[in-house]
Amino acid sequence: MHMPDGFLTLQVAAIAFLIDIPFWILSFKKVRRTFDEKTAPLFGTLTALIFAAQMVNWPIGPGGTTGHLIGSPLVSILLTPYSGVIALSIILLVQALVFNDGGITTYGGNVLSMAVVGSFVGYATYKTTFKLLSKLNVNKRTKLIIASFLGGWLGITSAALSTGIQLGLSSSVFGYGLSITIPVMVVSHAIIGLGEGVITATVVYYISKVRPDLVKEG
């Protein structure tokens, strides 16, 4: 989902970057307040883990395409969505500057989709699902698995929607509008997102077993 240079008009790229700025400021403020000796090292290792996991592609997408974890919903569920924004912003910066994976001019757009939208939508979905299932008297293990699966799935699908909107608004570059770019991005990622959901649920469930203190219950 990393947009390279040339996929967005300069106006759309600039607006996306401007939208990111308040999220960065808010995230740094919140993270500084909540970080402690337990969460700070977890943030570091989890960020490296997400970067490494993003290199593993699974071939389940339509038309021979592959998918990989974006990871922001996972970081958001285990830490906070603010940590998710910072972690993915670091990963996307390294990918763009060191590996040419994602562009420099499109960095703001990629952050908006994968870091901001992926983190907040993934976390909100996890929390809302967990609360809804609690009202239905579902056992804790099932709540955790379903809520984190949906958080992961909707996190990546909404990130794809954001990318589709940015591409559609850049129609002057290639001539296709929102009615084309949104379905193209959302449909393919809704399928690939199943993998994100499964991985998110598996990791959250595993961590809830070995380090229950790290997993918040909705």
């Binding site: 040339g6 339509p62 991005m185």
Partner: peptide, 25 residues
């Protein structure tokens, strides 16, 4: 990683998007 062909790559192919390399990482 070398086999990666992501949905955005496919979308770019369909929509005839052209990548611009502004620097070599």
């Amino acid at each position: 990683a070398s086999y990666a062909y992501e949905p955005l790559d496919k979308a770019a192919e369909i929509l005839k998007l052209k990548e611009i390399e502004i620097f070599k990482a």
